[in-house]
Structures are given as C-alpha cells and as structure tokens.
Design a protein around this nucleic acid. Sequence first.
DNA 1: ACATAAATTGACACCGCTGTCAAAAAGGCC
DNA 2: GGCCTTTTTGACAGCGGTGTCAATTTATGT
Lengths: 332, 332
Amino acid sequence: MAVTIDQIAEQAGVSASTVARVLRGDVKGVQERSARKSREILRISAELGYQPNWRARALSRGKTHTIGLLYSNPRWIFEDPMNEIATSFTETLQEENYDIRLVPVTETSDWKELVLGGAVDGLAFLLHVPEPAQAIVLEGRLPTILMGEKFGGLQHVVTDDISGGRLAARHLLGLGHKRIALYVNETIRDHVSVHERRQGFEQAMREAGYDSKAEVWRCNVDDVMQRLLARDAPTAIICYCHVEALELMHACWSHGVSVPTDLSLIAFNDIAATRYTTPPLTVIRFDTAELGAIGARRLAARIASPEEATDENTVVRQQLVLRGTTAPPTKR
Amino acid sequence: MAVTIDQIAEQAGVSASTVARVLRGDVKGVQERSARKSREILRISAELGYQPNWRARALSRGKTHTIGLLYSNPRWIFEDPMNEIATSFTETLQEENYDIRLVPVTETSDWKELVLGGAVDGLAFLLHVPEPAQAIVLEGRLPTILMGEKFGGLQHVVTDDISGGRLAARHLLGLGHKRIALYVNETIRDHVSVHERRQGFEQAMREAGYDSKAEVWRCNVDDVMQRLLARDAPTAIICYCHVEALELMHACWSHGVSVPTDLSLIAFNDIAATRYTTPPLTVIRFDTAELGAIGARRLAARIASPEEATDENTVVRQQLVLRGTTAPPTKR
DNA sequence: ACATAAATTGACACCGCTGTCAAAAAGGCC
DNA sequence: GGCCTTTTTGACAGCGGTGTCAATTTATGT
C-alpha cells in the first residue's frame, strides 16, 4: 500500500541501500554522476510521496523516540497544576525531537508490554509513581525522570516545599498573625510535599516563638469551618494546595466569613482559577514551565548518553505571590 | 539484551514458531505431550521474564494499537474544558485497548512521519484541526474523529451550540432582561461554535421580539466594561466561553459593578473554576465525559472495522446550570 | 598510463515477531 | 497393523527499514 524504499530503488534503477543512504543524506555528493543520481532519487521519492515507515525504523534502530508518561489516573495528569507541567514537558521534549505516549498504569492494562517491550525510550512520572510500576521502575531498565516527587534514588525535579511552607508562614507572621493553621484535606495521599510544607511552616512558627500555635488540620472543609468559628481560632490558614483553598473560600463565603478581613488565606499552587476568586488568592507559586522543561531536558540527556548521566537533582524554588486574601488580623 | 522468542525456543528445545504459538495461546492442547510442552514453554518464558518486543510486533502486524491525538499547541489540549474531554477520551480508549500518542503538529515537527509512517492507527482532534494537518487529514488515509468541531465531512462529535445559545438567551429573557449582548473575545478564532452560539442567541431574541437588541461584541474586556457603563447598556451578557466570563467577573469586581445585581452573566463551559467565583457562575454546560467517550468509541469502532463504519455524527446536548450570576434586571 | 586513495554502490544479514504451508506425529477406526 | 483424519510442529518468507562490508567506480598523483 504505502510507498517503500524498494519501489523507489526499482524506479531509479539503483539498490535499496543507495536509496536509503540518499534519503538519509549520507552521501558526499562529490562525484558528478552520483550527485545527479541523488537528485533523481529525491525527485522520485517526492513524486511517490514516500514516507519512511515508522514501525520498521523503530524495530531496526531499536528506538522509538518516544517518552512514556506513566500515570494511574488521567484525571491527575490533566489536572491543574500538572497540566501546566505536562504542557511544558511535552513542548520541551518536542524541541528535543521526542514524542509523548500516555501510558495508563493499572493492574490489567498492557503497560508492561509498552514499557518493557520497548515502545518507549524513557519514562516520566508526574507527582507520583503508580503502585504497580514501582518495582519495575526501580530496576532501572529505562531512563526515568520524576517530576514533583522523590522516589527511591531515581532522578527527580522537585519544588522547594520546605521554604514554600516557611514563606507562607513568615508572610502571615509578618502581618501580625499569631495563631496559624495548616489545612491538609484528609483525602490527600501522604506525599513528600505534605511533609515538607508542614516542616517549613512549623520551622517558621518555631523561629517566631509560636511553636505551640502551629496547628496542622487534617480534615475536611466542614471541620475547618467549625474549628474556625470556635473561640480563639486561628486568624490565618495555609492551605496545602489550591483545592483546599478554593473550597474554603467558598465555604467562607456561604458562612459569611469575610476574607481577608475575618480570615487570611494563603494557598499553594498558582493555578488559573486562583486569580479569579474574589478577592484573588494570595499563593505560593513555582514555575511549572521550568519544572517541566528541566524534567524534559534531563530525561532527553539521559537517553542520549546514559553513560554521562549525572545524578543531579533539581529543586525549583517557590515564591510568594501577594494578592488579596491576606491582611493583618482584625482585633476581635 | 532483552529476552527473545528464540532464546526461549532454544531452552525448551522447540522452534520459535511453537513458542510464538504457545504464547499466543494458539494451541488446542489436546495431545498430552503437546500440553506438557506448552506448560514448559510458559514456565521458561516466565522464568526468563520474557516480554514481547513491541516494536517487532508493530512492524509485523502492521498496527501499533495507538491513537494519535493531534494538536498544534499543547496549551490547548491540556486546557479546560479540553482536558476533561481528553481525560474521558483516553480513559475510554484504554478500555478498548488503545494507547494515546500526543502528536504536536507544527511545520517543522516530524508529525507526518508518525502519522503517514504508521506510528498510529487512527487520529483524533480536539476542537480544531491544525492548519498543517488539514490537507492530509482530508485525504482520509487514516480513521479520524473530530471532537467539538466540524470539518470537511470528517466524522465528528459536537455540542449543540445553537440550542445552547438559545437556552442562555431564553433564561435571561425569562428573568426580564430586554437588552442582552453576546461577548466574544476578539482573539477567538472563527470556530463553528462561535457562529452557532450566536445563531441560537439571535434566534431566541428574535422570537421574543428583541431582534434589534441582540448585540454581538467582538472586542476585549476593557471595551466591554466601557460599553456597559454607557447609557442604555445591556443588563445581561452571555459570554462565549468561561475565559471571557472569568475575566469579566474580575473586571466587574474592580469597577464596582455588582453581579448579578447590576449585571447578569452567563457563560459557556462548566469548568471547575466557574464554581469558585463569587457568586458562582451560571453556565451552559455539556457532558465533557460523554463527548470524549463517544469520540473514543467511534474511533475504535472505525479502526476495528473500516467497512462497517457509519458516518453518523453525534450531537451532545447543552444544558443550563443555574448558579449565582443571573437575576432579574434592576430598574435604574 | 598506472598505481593508489577516496568515493560510491549493492548484497546481505539483522531487528524480533507474524503467518502460511507442508511435513511429521498422534489419534481413531476397521 | 494399515489407513485416514486431526494436531502439532518447524522451516521460511515476509514486515521495511538499518548498518556493515567487500566490490566497483571515480579521482588523484607521478
């Protein structure tokens, strides 16, 4: 059906090897006769609309020039802020001439065949390594990069969550808040970032001498509202991520708690929606594009030359973005 | 390096063909000796950790069991509400045993090789068919599905934007609004949905006898605010999509225009962020999951049996979700 | 013109699996 | 046991390229 190298060879009256070489641009073209022949071959292949067969090439070269993005739930990779990371990851990888294959990892899917069978040249993970894949990834058969998570000595690019937590707390302390809580929704998995944000938060509170007033709430939004309405409640909340913050903003609005007058709020992850709340959310942000791009380049480099691979990990810094949900506490 | 069928064959003392057959489960296993041999082969291949070579299989079978999701800008496919469609599309395709390859389409990228070279078995487009791909797609060499857009006779799954526009307008008319504008940001490409939403809107206005008061504003948010502050301005705005609405909500907030007291707002696309504005946005929504799933199943069916392929297109209906940004107009 | 070096070319094995086909083995029946 | 049918098996030719190597052709130097 499709045009092959042999058809071109036949038409041009040369061998398939020659056609392959010419198409690959692997002829010096010094000799007159040869140069003419090359031009002829190029003409014919263009005329026939030749397209190299990707499958044959992959088998022969032993490479697919494809990166597998492994995930267990598509919702996670398409969701904020992962989608921003994924965007820049794919964009950068495209510059490096790689394509992305989305590989859903479940107990039943054929992901093993794809990964171990050579459908991809490297692996990438966003925010977490799915359970079923962990053992195999650790065997290190393929170049791997983890973005936003640390796992068993594999190369990673992460955010600086300890200083993120510290930044949030210090900002609130600077405004005069004395009692601050960190709200982590109870459904959140036990991710390194939970631990680190907490660590930074507690560190800052300790430095300020408010050690005992650093509370970590692992509950749901209703519990938070209830605790907030109690006597001597915190005057500021740091939300583990944007989800908690958006929920809480909404809950405050319906309970008549005014932000930032009655309560200061600060969230992690600067997703688009945080700019559209009323007032816009003060957040701790990191450069998602940078994280994705670094991950992409690291992985590409690793695939290109596995020997020279460095085990360097990168930490992307977090920064404070002042918007409208934090203010000095009101005396009450 | 990796274990091949020949290695297993050698160890088991049989031919490669036999191994292949056994692994494929293509033996009756009636004869005692044969059954024993099969078990032995399976044992050995498990012991050696055999994984079929995906590349070789693809070449040999002439199929990759992969769908190419073509896009010209990653931002678009990872963005709301496309990500919801993409999520359900990939999930459904996974059930049908296909994987997704993200194929960025630019002038320079090697997408032609991937698509025409047989790296994918079918093509999918979200909301638009990138320019460089249009000619080739129309040749119809590969099964194709378009989601959320119509293009040159290709099979598609779209939303019912005409009735969507009508729903929005009728709701506002029902509340007593007489002068309504449709705001389409000037940067929006000329997409069928722009035309159709407008059509539905104008249709409803005509039915209500307000034909001349159906304005379509193709401008930016500053222009909108300016026009709104004029005498005899519209009391309600239908936003072409969520982006316009979020921007406008924000602009209203900073200009002291209160929604919905001073202005009623209704938007298309029920993305997550619309639920977190204050007040939450009234929207016209469609079932993104349904659209993605239908697209996936159609494409899979087409690939499985190109002959029986129906040219049926599907229209996913739009519906009104009442939230807080619409109210009867205030006399002023 | 002749030897030598450089460029070009075609044959061929290979990548690892699939699918066909004819030969070999096993089973069934008289 | 002999004959026929059904299973099972291995050889082999692809799939469409890649890459090596030796043979052939052309260019260069004297």
